[in-house]
Amino acid sequence: MPMSQTIDFIIDGVEVSARPGQTILQAADEAGIYIPRLCAHKDLVPHGSCRICTVLVNGRPQSACTQPVAPGIVVQNDIEKLNNVRRNILDMLFVEGNHYCMFCEKSGNCELQALAYRFGIMAPKFPYQFPARDVDASHPDIYIDRNRCILCARCIRASRDLDGKHVFEFVGRGPEKRVAVNAEARLADTDVDVTDKALSICPVGALMRKRQGYADPIGRRRYDHQPIGSDIEAKRSATG
């Protein structure tokens, strides 16, 4: 790390050194402190929409993925008050969609599910909405299952910024909001490709490659034994 200039601050009582321009989330990741997140991804510009990564900065709620570090700030992350808010957000995401983990190809590798595991959610406290959502399986190699979409905008950002294509965009507002494709109607009529980053970056089973389902057996999937965030936390225990 270039030591020309560092910004020192505190997360959960731990002194952290960051570089100017980093967000709280980036600095925490490098320091081995896991701040839960869904819409944030290291290869994408921050979106700040899911609010899972909300932390208290000098007592004020801020999304860690958009908030730049500043000298001397005191950040609270792993506290019961915030973890309850995170549980509520996850609960709402589960009841607002149709998340049938038992037959979803993403199960075991799904970030939404993995966060619910990490927070020990055994059942949502809100009533299920069972919304009517559609599936677009028109493309020979790719499908969109909007039942599972959590509107994180990762595919929108990845297609625009990493793939250079603009295949996806939000349409509608509130409960009508959904990911639409850049074509008259169907995914098949866009220039999306199976190798697009937009596919692999989907945290849930909404944007999926066909004929890839259940490739990893139960017990060998990403979050079967280790909670999400363990890779980040391992950095801290490795360096002491």
Partner: peptide, 18 residues
């Protein structure tokens, strides 16, 4: 005790809910 996804979520039968 709600045992399993059908008791908790409705499960496969709940696919008709839409």
């Amino acid at each position: 005790i709600s045992l399993g996804e059908c008791a908790i979520l409705g499960g496969i039968p709940a696919l008709r809910n839409t």
